[in-house]
Design a protein around this nucleic acid. Structure first.
Lengths: 233, 233
DNA sequence: GTAATAGTGTCTATGAGACATTATTGA
DNA sequence: TCAATAATGTCTCATAGACACTATTAC
C-alpha cells in the first residue's frame, strides 16, 4: 500500500513575443538526462500538494504565486511513466505575466521559455508532452468563462493588451470593437485606473486592473472553428 | 522521496427520486470506523490511476464505467488528511443512471445513496465532504457545456427526463418549451430512436439516445442566480 | 369527456458579429 | 499634416426567455 513517490510538475504559461510559451527545464540528471521537461520535483514529507507547487514555482522562477494564477491541473500515474519506479505526479497550471528570464534550478542545466505548439524537436521527458497539452487546453477553455486572461498581463494593462492575450492563446483574431465592448461592460472584469499610457505612438490607451469577478457571465466564447454546430474542437 | 500511499476515491452521482445523490460507504474498519465515506481504495502496484477508479467502481457498484461517465476530478494530499500516514488521493467523478441498490464492498458495513446537499448528520470521514462538494460543483458546471446530463439517464430517455436531470442538478426550474427547443436543435446532442413511451398517462414521449457530441456549442447556461452580472456563483 | 403530459409556434429582449468613423497622441 | 493606435456607435442576426395552444394517450 505504500511505496509511491509523489511529485508536482508545473505547466507555467506566459506570453512572449506574441507566442504562448511554457517554461521547460533541461534535465541535468537521469532519467532523461539532457532532455527537456516541465519543472517540478518531489513533494516533501510534511508538505501539502499546493504548497509543493508554490515552492517549485518559486524555486524555478523566483516568482510569487500571487503575481499570476496557480491551480491544480490533473494527476498522472501510469505505472511506466518514470523508470525510477512508481511516481504519481500532480500537475499544476500557472498563468504568468511576461517575466525576466527565469533562473535555472539547481538540478537543471538550462531553463527556457518555449512555444507550446512546438516545445522542442526532441520529445519531452516522461509524459510531459501530454501534461503540457492538457495545460494549454485548460488555459484555452478557462479564458472563455473566467477573467484569468488578466493573469497573463502586468498589474496594469490596456484593453488591446488583454485582447492580444486572447488572440495568442486561442490562435484566432478577435474584433477589437466587439472585444472592447464585451470586456468593459462585463461587471467585475476590469477596473479602470483612470491612468493612460503615454510615450507610445498613437492615441493613449486607458489602463485597467483586474476586477473582482471570478467567472464571466455570459462567457466570452472563442469563435467556432468550422461548423456552426457542436462536435469536436 | 518514497513512502506515500496513493488512493482513489469516487464521487458517484446519480439521481434518485428527484434528488442528486452520492454513494457513501459506512466504514467497517478504522480510521473513521462507523463513519460514512466516499467509496475508494488504494491504487495497486502496477495499476494506472484510471484503471484503479474503474476497478473500484466495479467493486462498489458492480457497474461498468461505460454505462455512465467517469473522469478524474482532482487530487487531495494534505499531510494530516489520513491518520494512517501520508496518503494522496486522486478523486474521480462518475455520473451514473439510476441503479439498483449498490452492493456493499467487502470492507464496509453498509452502502447507501445519500442526498448530496445533506449527506449525513455526522461529518464524513477524511476530507470527503470537500471532495464531494467539488464533485457536485464539477457536475453542475459540466452540464452547461457538455451533453453529460445524458449520463444520468438510461440508454433511452425522453426530453422530459433529461430536463428533470438538469433541474435536479442545478436546483432550478427550466422552461419545458425552451429546453425542448435547445436540446433538439443542438447538433449531436440527441439522436431520436423513432420509438415512443407507452403505458404512461398522458401523451407518449419520443425516445432519444445520447448523440456523438462532446461539447455543447453554444452552451446551455444555468440561469443566473441573482444579479444579471458576473461575480460569485 | 376529462385529466395528464408531450410537443410546437410566436413575440421580444439580449448579446454577438460585422463594420466605419472619430479621437488623441508622436513624429 | 500624417501616421498610428484607441475608443465608440449602428445595424443585423442569432439565441434565449416568456408565454399559450394543440396533440395524444389512459381512464
Amino acid at each position: 500500500m505504500d511505496g509511491f513517490a509523489v511529485a508536482v510538475d508545473l505547466v507555467l504559461l506566459t506570453i512572449r513575443d506574441g507566442t504562448l510559451c511554457a517554461l521547460l527545464i533541461r534535465r541535468g540528471i537521469p532519467p532523461y538526462r539532457g532532455r527537456w521537461a516541465l519543472p517540478g520535483g518531489f513533494v516533501l514529507r510534511e508538505e501539502d500538494l499546493g504548497a509543493a507547487a508554490v515552492r517549485e514555482l518559486r524555486e524555478e522562477t523566483g516568482l510569487d504565486a500571487s503575481a499570476g494564477h496557480l491551480e491544480q491541473l490533473a494527476s498522472y500515474g501510469h505505472p511506466g511513466r518514470d523508470p525510477r519506479g512508481r511516481v504519481v505526479t500532480v500537475a499544476y497550471l500557472a498563468l504568468l505575466p511576461d517575466l525576466p528570464v527565469p533562473v535555472a534550478g539547481t538540478d537543471a542545466a538550462h531553463a527556457a521559455w518555449r512555444p507550446t505548439d512546438r516545445p522542442h524537436p526532441d520529445r519531452l521527458a516522461f509524459d510531459h508532452a501530454r501534461i503540457l497539452a492538457d495545460g494549454v487546453e485548460r488555459a484555452r477553455a478557462k479564458l472563455e468563462y473566467t477573467p484569468l486572461a488578466t493573469a497573463f498581463c502586468p498589474a496594469e494593462f490596456t484593453v488591446a493588451e488583454l485582447r492580444a492575450v486572447y488572440e495568442t492563446v486561442w490562435g484566432a483574431a478577435l474584433d477589437p470593437r466587439n472585444f472592447h465592448r464585451k470586456v468593459t461592460t462585463t461587471a467585475g472584469f476590469l477596473v479602470p485606473t483612470g491612468e493612460s499610457t503615454a510615450g507610445e505612438r498613437g492615441r493613449p490607451a486607458q489602463l485597467y486592473r483586474r476586477g473582482a469577478a471570478t467567472i464571466l457571465y455570459p462567457p466570452l466564447l472563442r469563435p467556432a472553428p468550422t461548423t456552426p454546430a457542436a462536435q469536436a474542437r
